[in-house]
């Protein structure tokens, strides 16, 4: 009887502990929605033919729903704010546990980043990820010097001070996560024209780090093992600068490995991007307008060159996507009305 009581007490303690951990964790529902992106994937039907991998340059610039509407391509963006290449690698590994796409498109901008630099971005990406070996490896690869994996396992160690700042959101989303993206695409309808850009700076070195090349190799091998075609892309942007030296290194790499590389900066005019109307932050990322243009442009290439299925011919999938599209356009309409 005594031992039973002890066991019950300890179980209650553990339950309260888990509850408190969840209570003080940020919910990323209506604020900092970038923190909800990794988690949104788990609710998805996992039968995508194309996986887009990378940082904000994918989730802001490529809309899989546009790809479906126009070409019947089923795609998903597994991208997060400032997602480093090692993070992309482990996220791809996790994705392959759930599904086997035909194509993986990797946006190469993160090749520039040599070391973990911000706890905040790590938190946004990792906090709501499901526990797996990949998550542990991902955390170990991502942490800045001041961080400890314990605070990822027990978020209360990191977020306990939020106990004094709880809002209704924390209770509403206590045991569920809000999905804020459409197949990994985050709608942004603001317009901030690209009037002025910071001056170009001389860098000490333009050489990508050895570590990043190793991760790129890992991504390449992972795709090869799974019979997936890897494509490299560089999203259009005016800033941060994608230097000629960067581009040459990627071109060389793509040639060596015999993979395709699309640098959309070179074809900004062909795509029809107008940096007076198609960017929400003065030339760094595309807004909804720009993303729609890019998606249509890129979709045609994907469709023509890589022999993708037109899922508009499959009723079940078509139905699913039509529902998504309905919501997608409703949010766009609502957002448009709010702005005007």
């Amino acid at each position: 009887m005594k031992y039973l009581k002890i066991v019950v007490v300890i179980i209650i303690f553990i339950l309260i502990f888990i509850f408190l951990n969840r209570l003080v964790s940020p919910k990323y529902a209506n604020h900092l929605v970038e923190g909800s992106m990794t988690n949104a994937y788990y609710k998805e039907d996992k039968d995508h033919e194309v996986i887009f991998l990378g940082d904000c340059e994918v989730y802001a610039n490529i809309s899989p729903l546009v790809l479906f509407e126009n070409y019947g391509i089923t795609g998903y963006v597994r991208g997060n704010s400032s997602q480093d290449i090692w993070q992309s690698y482990y996220l791809l590994k996790e994705t392959l546990k759930y599904e086997k796409p035909k194509l993986v498109v990797f946006n190469v901008s993160s090749m520039k980043t040599a070391a973990p630099d911000s706890e905040a971005y790590n938190r946004l990406m990792i906090d709501n990820m499901k526990w797996s070996k990949e998550k542990i490896d991902l955390i170990n690869a991502s942490m800045t010097k001041e961080e400890s994996i314990l605070s990822y396992i027990f978020p209360i160690l990191r977020y306990h001070s939020r106990i004094s700042e709880l809002t209704m959101e924390d209770f509403k989303y206590l045991f569920k996560n809000k999905v804020n993206t459409y197949n990994g695409f985050l709608i942004n309808q603001n317009i901030k024209p690209a009037d002025s850009l910071p001056a170009k700076r001389e860098l000490a070195t333009y050489e990508f780090s050895q570590k990043n090349y190793e991760y790129l190799d890992e991504i390449y091998s992972l795709c090869k093992e799974n019979n997936i075609t890897l494509i490299l892309m560089k999203a259009p942007s005016l800033y941060p600068y994608w230097y000629q030296e960067y581009d040459e290194q990627i071109k060389k790499y793509a040639e060596e490995k015999n993979i395709d590389y699309y640098n959309f900066i070179d074809v900004i005019n062909d795509i029809g991007i107008d940096y007076n109307t198609d960017t929400y932050d003065g030339g760094l990322h595309l807004n909804l307008n720009g993303a729609t243009k890019l998606s249509k442009y890129f979709g045609r290439i994907l469709k023509e060159k890589y022999n993708l299925t037109d899922y508009r011919d499959y009723d079940i999938i078509k139905q699913r996507y039509e529902e998504k599209l309905k919501e997608y356009y409703k949010e766009i309409k609502d957002g448009y009305e709010k702005n005007n």
Binding site: V9, I10, I12, F13, I16, F17, L20, V24, E119, E146, S151, I156, L157, R158, H160, S161, I163
Partner: peptide
């Protein structure tokens, strides 16, 4: 148990 929960939640520590 109560002590641990109180300190973890209401203590001021860490980053």
């Amino acid at each position: 148990d109560i002590f641990i929960l109180i300190i973890l939640t209401f203590g001021m520590y860490g980053i």
